[in-house]
Design a protein around this nucleic acid. Structure first.
Length: 917
RNA sequence: AGGACUGUAGCUCAGUGGUAGAGCACUACCUUGACACGGUAGGGGUCAGGGGUUCGAAACCCCUCAGUCCUACCA
């Protein structure tokens, strides 16, 4: 076996291991043997996209859970795939065309689509490689693209079924128009941002009188399309005008004054509202109520159209605004201008201001779908985490609007509907029709629109499993188990999958939704190219290794607020990987004469027989702690606290296993091959690292696999850690204490309960405290760490004294002492430093070295600190309320601590007296 | 306008009723036979502020302040 290098080099193992796993088919779920399944569908990234931190977070969390379940014996399936991303991709290709001076309209639909497919072939797939670099154990044999054949069939089937169910309809309505990408958008794709604007007060002359009705508006240019003015029916200022008309300035149009209590708030502005049904959602509804004309003055190109007076035609909305205001002012119709904050609707994709425009579009009637989706969460069939996000989900589902699903794009699933030139009827079909189903005419043409990208992603858990065919996958893996994604697409995606999944199968698409928050730049702001705060996960993998990044992201999985990226922490986890690497390297160096057969016989004798008598104190202690850590990590994973699971294992590996056990084991390992202590330590090392690497694997798959394969393991174990059994609790006793565990220590319960193990844990705690006290004394008196000194221990209590004798060798070794002696009070030299732990006085004799006065002061400080703690405890224990109401175990703990403090105070007091204080 | 979340060490974050924690950064010492991406010993916090509940509050309740975000819109 080649010796491991002293610095862990991720590049040397990651690709090799990933390809090995993949080529051996280890990412595929195990064959169906009736075992439970665990299914996760990866949120499909844009096909031409690059991995960003959000993807990395998603993949880390999902992979951790998939690997955990796979090791736990479930048939785990994690489904990959990519999204055609309608607008995003089309915009990119159009930009590319523009470089050649071409437009999509110029080259035509067919050529444009061909070009987009080419673009997809050229730029697609990069993100798959990047997911692989992260270690994602996705089943690539089931890869899917939202516009491949299977997906397209699913989309078409879904559209037709919804249409047959009366849940898809076509209507002439006001929609949000993005003039940059020339398409309608759903409400969700419009973001609102607050900007400083103005409130213009415009005077409209009332027909047949000298009166002028003053309206207030933030969009004066739309007055060209006004078809009414609304006032509140109870408003005494205007009541008499209802039913009369105003003459619009600039256009001269005669429009009615209507009374409308819904639109008008008497206290806002002037109390009179101009009504422009074609360009405002509320006005559109008001227009319907009063049968007002819909006069479109803004065209799909974002400019004023032919319905506007000639002077304004062709102007952009902004230019038209300036021109209209100037014209009104010239006409004496501008009464007042005041500053006003308003919210602008902006396209999520292109960033341009969206115009509400009336047009013919396809809609999904959402109310019946939402009712089922709402019920499924209310009755717990699907659980949303963090819990408080459930309220957002409820609120959105309860106030849901119909979903505009048609887009005037070319890249996407074309609406499977045909318009008849003869009878104007619409034919919707699973197969392309050759004639109108209403009149039989052959003069039919397919609808030009494509479907919202989210329509196909909304079907994703179904599509990836082969729906609408009744595939074996669908039957075995649906409903899926976990949907992990960013909370920013709760409505866009999760809600739609819930609605469509329930509608088409009657079952929820997933049982648990786990929502994570956004990864922000190191400056705490949203990552953006313009801000220059973008962190590229691939660069981090290059620099620190995939496991370091994964470990970091795992510890952030619980963050609800926003994850402020910290490179220093990634680096910290890189250091952790290195620590682990070297710890196993150390173990390996000491296991050269301890092969699989030796390990098997050791386990048979120690683990299987449950006989720990041959094990040293430290061996027993670390075995117990490793088991406890594995159990704890399993529980934390089950409760979706991946962050705490990662933390727990980090702490154990570094501060218990490396800091104490490996140091202590060196004492046992000094012996020769025949030495039973050496053998005990070897068996312990092999077993504990086996446990640790299994526990760690879901979070850090590469390094754990690489190291595990270097350790001896009994015959019969597989060759890959990723398929090894996770050390999880299999059975528990009546009180809930673990009995048996999967993995290398089946009888974990008996081992943990063993009295010899319990005693060893007490001893180890004492060893740690005594060693720490002696190190502190050495540092305090500025002795070089290498200087071997004699330490004296004084303990009156026979039990304590016996323990000191038991741990003598270990303490000498760990504290680098020359010797350790148990002495009587009289033997303690006057000139010495001392500390008290657990009723044992630790004395460092310092003849000629110690400044008695200074040492008195130091001990005085210790006494003061102990005194304070003792006083506060004593007060608490004297409090009748505390005695009466606190739980007995808390009282007992405090009493024990107080007794300990009193012994320590007494000892320190005598020490100080000895020093002449 | 409603609503959610957050405020703990210089920075990034744990800690949900029982004496304030980790990583990084900082100070001093150490090339100790796995690891300097390391070791040992340290310094550093009125747990945003105020009130309340409780024997006991960083944690539970109320208010204030600050930050982040979501939803809906007043023309």
């Amino acid at each position: 076996m080649e010796p491991l290098r002293t610095v862990y080099d991720p590049k040397a193992v990651e690709t090799r291991l990933y390809e090995g796993w993949r080529d051996a088919g280890q990412f595929k779920p195990a064959a169906d043997a009736g075992q439970p399944t665990f299914t996760v569908v990866l949120p499909p990234p844009n096909v031409t996209g690059r991995l960003h931190m959000g993807h990395a977070l998603t993949a880390t969390i999902e992979d951790a859970y998939v690997r955990w379940h796979r090791m736990a014996g479930d048939a785990a399936l994690w489904l990959p795939g990519t999204d055609h991303a309608g607008i995003a991709t089309q915009v990119m290709v159009e930009r590319d065309l523009a470089k050649e001076g071409k437009t999509r309209q110029g080259i035509g639909r067919e050529a444009f689509l061909a070009r987009t497919w080419q673009w997809k072939e050229r730029h697609g797939g990069i993100i798959d490689t990047q997911h692989a670099a992260l270690g994602a154990s996705l089943d690539w044999s089931r890869d899917r693209f939202t516009m491949d054949e299977v997906s397209s069939r699913a989309v078409r089937e879904a559209f037709c079924r919804l249409h047959e169910d009366g849940l898809i309809y076509r209507a002439y309505r006001l929609i949000n128009w993005d003039h940059a990408s020339q398409t309608a958008l759903s409400d969700l794709e419009v973001e609102h941002k607050e900007v400083d604007g103005f409130l213009w007060h415009l005077a409209y002359p009332v027909e047949g009188s000298d009166e002028r009705l003053v309206v207030a508006t933030t969009r004066p240019e739309t007055m060209l399309g006004d078809s009414g003015v609304a006032v509140h029916p109870d408003d005494p200022r205007y009541q008499h005008l209802i039913g009369r008309h105003v003459i619009l300035p600039l256009t001269g149009r005669r429009v009615p004054i209507v009374g409308d209590a819904i639109l008008v708030d008497m206290t806002f502005g002037t109390g009179a509202v101009k009504v422009t049904p074609a360009h405002d959602f509320n006005d559109f509804k008001t227009g319907k109520r009063h049968e007002l004309a819909v006069i479109t003055v803004i065209g799909f190109d974002g400019n004023m159209n032919a319905n506007a007076p000639e002077a304004f035609r062709g102007l952009s909305v902004a230019a038209a605004r300036t021109a209209v205001v100037a014209a009104l002012e010239a006409a004496g119709a501008l009464v007042k201008v005041e500053p006003h904050k308003l919210n602008l609707g902006v396209s999520q994709r292109t960033g341009v201001v969206c115009e509400p425009l009336p047009s013919d579009q396809w809609f999904v009637s959402t109310a019946p779908l939402a009712a089922k989706a709402l019920a499924a969460v209310k009755d717990g069939r699907t659980r949303i985490l963090p819990e408080h996000r459930t309220a957002d989900y409820y609120r959105w589902m309860e106030s849901i609007q119909d979903w505009c699903i048609s887009r005037q794009l070319w890249w996407g699933h074309r609406v499977p509907a045909w318009h008849c030139a003869a009878c104007k009827g619409i034919t919707v079909g699973r197969e392309d029709p050759s004639a109108c189903q209403h009149c039989g005419s052959a003069a039919i043409a397919q609808d030009n629109d494509v479907l919202d990208t989210w329509f196909s992603s909304g079907l994703w858990p179904l599509t990836t499993l082969g729906w609408p065919e009744k595939t074996a996958d669908l039957q075995r893996f649906y409903p899926t188990d976990l949907m992990e994604t960013g909370w920013d697409i709760l409505f866009f995606w999760v809600a739609r999958m819930m609605m469509l999944g329930l509608h088409f199968t009657g079952e929820v698409p997933f049982k648990t939704v786990f929502l994570h928050s956004m990864v922000l730049g190191e400056d705490g702001k949203k990552m953006s190219k313009t801000r220059g705060n973008v962190v590229d996960p691939i660069e981090l993998i290059d620099q620190y290794g995939a496991d370091s990044l994964r470990f970091y992201l795992a510890t952030m999985a619980g963050q609800d607020q926003g994850i402020i990226f910290s490179r220093a922490r990634v680096e910290g986890y890189r250091n952790f990987c290195n620590k682990l690497w070297n710890a196993v390297r150390f173990a390996g160096m000491n296991l050269e004469d301890f092969d699989a057969a030796e390990l098997a016989s050791w386990r048979a004798a120690v683990i299987d027989r449950g006989d720990v008598s041959a094990l040293a104190t430290a061996d027993r202690w670390i075995l117990a702690r490793a088991l406890e850590t594995a159990i704890q990590v399993g529980e934390l994973l089950a409760s979706y606290r991946l962050d705490l699971a990662a933390h727990a294992i980090y702490q154990f590996v570094w501060y218990e296993l490396c800091d104490w056990y490996l140091e202590a084991a060196k004492l046992s390992l000094r012996g020769d091959a025949a030495d039973p202590l050496r053998r005990a330590a070897q068996g312990t090392l092999a077993t504990v690292f086996d446990l640790v690497l299994r526990t760690l694997h879901p979070i850090t798959p590469f390094i754990s696999e690489a190291l595990w394969q270097t350790l001896p393991r009994p015959a019969g174990e597989g060759d890959s850690l990723m398929l090894a059994a996770y050390p999880r609790v299999l059975t528990r006793d009546a009180a809930g204490a673990p009995l048996t565990m999967a993995g290398p220590v089946p009888g974990a319960g008996a081992l943990l309960a063993d009295s010899g193990v319990q005693a060893a844990r007490e001893d180890m705690a004492a060893i740690i405290e005594v060693v720490t006290a002696t190190r502190m004394l050495k540092a305090e008196f500025k002795l070089p760490p290498a200087q071997r000194v004699e330490i004296l221990l004084r303990a009156e209590d026979p039990a304590a004294q016996a323990r000191v004798l038991r741990m003598q060798a270990c303490v000498v070794h760990l504290a680098r002492l020359q010797s350790l002696r148990v002495v009587e009070a009289a033997e303690v030299p006057r000139e010495s430093g001392s500390a008290v732990v657990r009723g044992v006085e630790v004395v460092l004799p310092l003849i000629g070295l110690v400044d008695l006065a200074a040492e008195r002061v130091r001990i005085g400080k210790d006494l003061e600190k102990l005194g304070k703690e003792g006083d506060s405890l004593a007060r608490k224990l004297d409090n009748a309320g505390f005695r009466a109401k606190a739980p007995p175990e808390v009282i007992a703990k405090d009493e024990a601590r107080l007794a300990e403090i009193r012994v320590d105070i007494e000892k320190l007091g005598r020490t100080r007296a000895r020093l002449g204080g």
